[in-house]
Amino acid sequence: MKITIVAGARPNFIKIAPIIKAIQQQQQCNENIHYRLIHTGQHYDKNLSDTFFEELNIPKPDANLEVKSGSQAVQTAAIMVAFEKELQENPTDLVLVVGDVNSTMACAITAKKAHIKVAHVEAGIRSGDITMPEEINRIVTDSISDYYFTTSLWAGENLLKQGALPSQIHFVGNVMIDTLYQNQNKFSKPTFWDTLALQPQNYVVLTLHRPSNVDEENGLITLLQGIESIISDKKIIFPVHPRTKAILGEKTVGLKNIIFVEPQSYLNFMFLIQHSFAVITDSGGITEETTVLGIPCFTMRTSTERPETVSIGTNYLIGTTIHELQKTYSNFITNGLKTHSIPELWDGKTSERIINILMKMPI
């Protein structure tokens, strides 16, 4: 079996690492399975790309499509053009895509039009917010995939509603958690840890990346000022994307308690998360990691595609206003973290299940 694995952005790299490891384990047992790794180049900053390959022991990609940035349409089109040529020159039995970035959708469409089977890892998750580019990517990818690997039973129900057959859906767990468990003993202090006199639980991690939060200068400043007023007794570590930092410009000088740092490598970032007092974010993936690590997480969104992190895990879905953050955070300070546990099959063995299933498929 020949599998073409696609990765394009930071979350993809974290998800493909254990999948490749599971394939390599099968190869060591003389199983007839081979893979070709394609990096679309959607994320090309070293801290968003190369470092992840190095730290997670991901082999050098067989090809880098080098599409880089652009509008949603420009980037998606560039990926499709380049990936079509890749498939023509390197025939495969299956294209495996992960997550919900532009590379996921673009490569799934290209593969299907070339009559190649598609497997979608992390299929079926839905936020219900069609204004999110990721939601469109999920819906389109799931509408044409052949094999669905889900993180929850709820995701499988979404796929059934969309018309997928039960035989196509495989509840396997969460590959992000495979990577967490496989690398937890390697989490390492970032270079600024000692300089800033950071200690376990004396800081909060902040991440913001959604356009509604970061693309408008005055709104972003107001949001950061509000967060700083609520978290007044702890440092706030904000790994900030260069584009967001450019939007802020010199206005960061008025924020005394928020410390702006460069985007972090996986091992450094996970060290920060593991030892933090809490996390404030608008990300989806981070809520999975905080759930497994038992870290309180306050998600500034009105919807989530990972409801199990709220119903089972440590995540609080609080909306987008400072008032809601203030209310929920204050309740947490008064009453402590809510009762929580780890979702079913988030056990570090998801990638093994995926590859075992694929090897039995009549591809």
Rank of each mutant, 00 (worst) to 15 (best):
L272M: 15
P307V: 08
I318H: 04
E262Q: 13
N315S: 11
N268Q: 13
T314W: 09
E288W: 08
G313R: 14
M300G: 11
P263S: 07
P296N: 10
G294S: 10
G294V: 00
I322T: 14
H323M: 06
L325D: 01
R306M: 09
T304G: 13
R306I: 08
T299C: 14
G319F: 01
E305F: 14
G294K: 01
T304K: 13
G285I: 05
F277L: 03
A278I: 04
I286P: 04
I318K: 01
T304F: 13
H323Y: 10
N331T: 09
R306A: 11
K327W: 00
E305T: 11
T321N: 08
Q274W: 01
G319E: 03
S276L: 04
H323T: 11
I295M: 11
T309G: 10
M270K: 07
F271Q: 06
A278L: 06
T328D: 01
L317A: 06
T299L: 14
I322Y: 05
F277S: 09
T314L: 07
E288P: 10
F269D: 03
S330R: 10
E262P: 01
L325A: 02
I312Q: 15
L293W: 11
S265E: 02
M270H: 14
E288N: 13
L272D: 05
V310Q: 12
V292W: 14
L317I: 08
I280A: 03
E308W: 09
F271M: 02
G294P: 01
G294N: 05
E305S: 13
T309W: 08
L272H: 04
K327L: 09
G313L: 10
E288G: 11
E308I: 06
T320H: 03
T328H: 05
S276D: 04
L293P: 13
Q274H: 14
I322Q: 10
S283A: 15
I286V: 15
S283W: 04
T320D: 06
P307C: 12
Y316G: 01
G294R: 00
G319D: 02
